[in-house]
Design a protein around this nucleic acid. Structure first.
Length: 593
RNA sequence: GGUCCAGUAGCUCAGUUGGAUAGAGCAACAGCCUUCUAAGCUGUCGGUCAUGCGUUCGAGUCGCAUCUGGAUCACCA
């Protein structure tokens, strides 16, 4: 039983004994006492006033006296208005600490054969351009979510759906044919995804020029778009692709390989991975089949021009196109096909899509359609809808070149980490390999924490002109604390033979133990609410608490042997918990920095 | 226009089923390294929690209305 539960139980008994009021212990939620008052846990007594027929403070005192007399955990209490502040005794805290210390996988629930299987789809890039900051948020959230669900005892399958087909790829392919002169990533010395992205931009540039020319010759915008030979060629290429034309297919395969090699490198640096990757080129036909099946069953209908639609007006939504008049499939069709393949491949209990909130409508529709098509899990699919990353001026726009590239950003973060380390002279004793390793995880730690500490549902702002901080509420702050503890432990090794029972605790140690005791419930809440930010905020609070302790409580100089030993072991457990919590965020922590 | 999301300090963000005088970091200013790593610690400054009404012993948190910003409602993905 946790400390909170013990106190809640005792409070329920007190209320029953004093006022004859029957309440469920789970209805009493003790909260951490605010810093400005003495005590560890606080009971709010307002709900009991009707039964006590006394003033708030008198009621609090009465319950406090009862608890002090009957609950061995309660050492002292004080009452302020309707708030009963309880100080718990040292023995309880020491026992709590020992239990935490003994649990090597503290806060982690192992999966069993009966555990539910959760599939998490994240990343989901297009193959016509490199990953940018928006993808970075997606990837970090998806990976972290997987880690958090694993820590909550779920079996997790990480998946990625690569949008490797469609008109956008054809644009890059066409541009490469026209202006590429047979260039390859090797020859250009450029990552494949960036090379393809450059050709996509080149297409857009030439296309715009063509449109401008056509409009100058007196055509309207619409007429110009129709008359554009570039666009016609791109569409023709897509038709040849769909028809299985060998030349187009082999060009497509080659260029996609370039992109994947580039993506793989970005994923590796970012520290994310996947158990199974799906490609839309393999799923869109399955989706088409399902839609035609739905058409036969009367779930969908066909218009005169041959296009296929679903009528969702009964569910408060609109009509939704599922197959174009030329028979080709759209985004939604592909997602239906992908869903079917996945459920054929895995016994999925829960499906989570990590996709931006701009697609809230899409997933509402997808959920309804899957349900109508007879997928029994359709209704319960989870759209993990996260907010956009915006610049101070607003949305990132690829056409205006304001997109923050993922590779560039990682490079910049690592370079900054290097500069800061050099400036502080922190890594002068390290080998070049160590410097490389430490600056990489510190730079990435700053980036990852910056993104993950924000509530995923909210839009967030990134200002490229201001570099991401390394001081204060940041990843490096957390990593630094870990490194400092490791450094301490290199100098003095904890001796488990020394008894800590007699240590007389200061409020610093108690606050730390209490914070550590909170960890499992934070992991559980992060899993329930799909929020890596809760883990980030927790580990920040823990680290802040530890730094105060570190500053105020000398360890090596402490003459009380038991207390010295406790502080040492407490430090070791804090370091372990920092590492465990940050691993749920995909952040590594160094032993020195 | 319909639907959905958001609005907390100059800036970036917390605020756990409604609880005490709304918290951090950054920025600014002032302190603390002969002591376990100063990427740290301490202090000062900074708020009509968008606005109004309501529910409640108690509202940043719940409800209604208004204002502002964003997203979406494509034969784009």
């Amino acid at each position: 039983m946790s400390i909170e539960q013990t106190i809640a139980q005792a409070t329920a008994e007190a209320v029953k004994a004093l006022y004859g009021l029957d309440i469920d212990a789970s209805a009493v939620v003790p909260q951490t006492t605010r810093k400005e008052f003495e005590g560890n846990l606080t009971i709010v007594v307002f709900p009991f006033l009707k039964a006590s027929h006394k003033a708030p403070e008198a009621t609090a005192v009465e319950i406090g006296e009862y608890l002090q007399a009957h609950c061995p955990a309660v050492a002292r209490f004080n009452a302020v208005k309707g708030f009963l502040n309880l100080s718990l005794n040292d023995t309880l805290w020491l026992d709590t600490f020992r239990a935490i210390e003994a649990d090597e996988r503290y806060g982690f629930t192992e999966a069993t054969p009966d555990s539910q299987l959760v599939m998490i789809e994240y990343s989901s890039p297009n193959t016509n351009k490199p990953l940018h900051l928006g993808h970075v948020r997606n990837n970090l959230l998806g990976y972290s979510l997987a880690q958090i669900l694993k820590a909550n005892g779920y079996k997790v399958v990480k998946t990625n759906i690569v949008n490797d087909r469609g008109i956008h790829i054809c644009k890059s392919m066409l541009a490469w044919q026209k202006w590429g002169n047979g260039i390859t990533p090797e020859k250009a010395g450029v990552k494949g995804d960036h090379l393809i992205g450059d050709f996509y931009v080149a297409f857009d540039k030439h296309y715009k020029a063509e449109l401008a020319e056509l409009e100058a010759s007196g055509k309207s915008k619409e007429e110009a778009e129709q008359a554009s030979t570039l666009m016609q060629e791109a569409r023709a290429m897509l038709r040849r692709w769909e028809a299985g034309d060998e030349e187009v297919r082999s060009l497509w395969a080659m260029m996609n390989e370039w992109v994947y090699a580039g993506f793989d490198e970005t994923y590796r640096r970012l520290g994310v991975d996947f158990d199974k990757i799906y490609y839309e080129s393999q799923t869109y036909l399955v989706g088409k089949e399902k839609v035609l099946e739905g058409l036969e069953k009367g779930i969908m209908y066909r218009k005169d021009d041959g296009s296929v639609w679903a009528d969702l007006t009964a569910d408060g939504l609109d009509h939704k196109l599922l197959l174009r008049s030329d028979g080709t499939s759209v985004y939604m069709t592909q997602d239906i096909g992908t869903a079917k393949l996945r459920y054929d491949d895995y016994p999925i209990d829960r499906m989570i899509y990590v996709v931006g909130n701009e697609q809230d409508y899409h997933f509402k529709v997808l959920s309804l359609l899957l349900d109508k098509l007879g997928f029994k899990w359709g209704k319960e699919l989870v759209h993990f809808s996260y907010g956009m990353v915006e610049l101070p001026e607003g949305k990132m726009k690829s056409r205006e070149g304001t997109v923050v590239d993922a590779d560039d950003l990682m490079d910049a973060m690592i370079a900054t980490a290097k500069d800061v380390s050099a400036e502080l002279g922190k890594l002068d004793e390290c080998t070049p390999d160590e410097v490389e390793y430490i600056t990489r995880i510190v730079g990435l730690g700053a980036l990852k924490y910056f993104i993950l500490k924000v509530d995923p549902r909210k839009n967030m702002t990134f200002n490229p002109k201001e570099s991401i901080d390394f001081n204060g509420n940041t990843g490096p702050f957390i990593q630094y604390t870990h490194a400092r503890i490791k450094s301490l432990l290199r100098k003095v090794t904890p001796d488990s033979g020394i008894d800590i029972a007699g240590a007389s605790l200061t409020e610093r140690e108690v606050a730390l133990i209490q914070r550590l005791a909170d960890y499992p419930s934070v992991v559980a809440e992060a899993g329930r609410s799909y929020s890596p930010a809760l883990i980030a905020n927790y580990v920040y609070d823990l680290v802040k608490e530890y730094n105060q302790f570190y500053h105020d409580c000398p360890i090596m100089k402490e003459s009380d042997v038991a207390l010295r030993q406790l502080r040492l072991r407490l430090s070791a457990v804090v370091a372990r918990t920092i590492a465990a919590a940050t691993s749920l965020l995909g952040i590594e922590v160094p032993d020195r920095m």
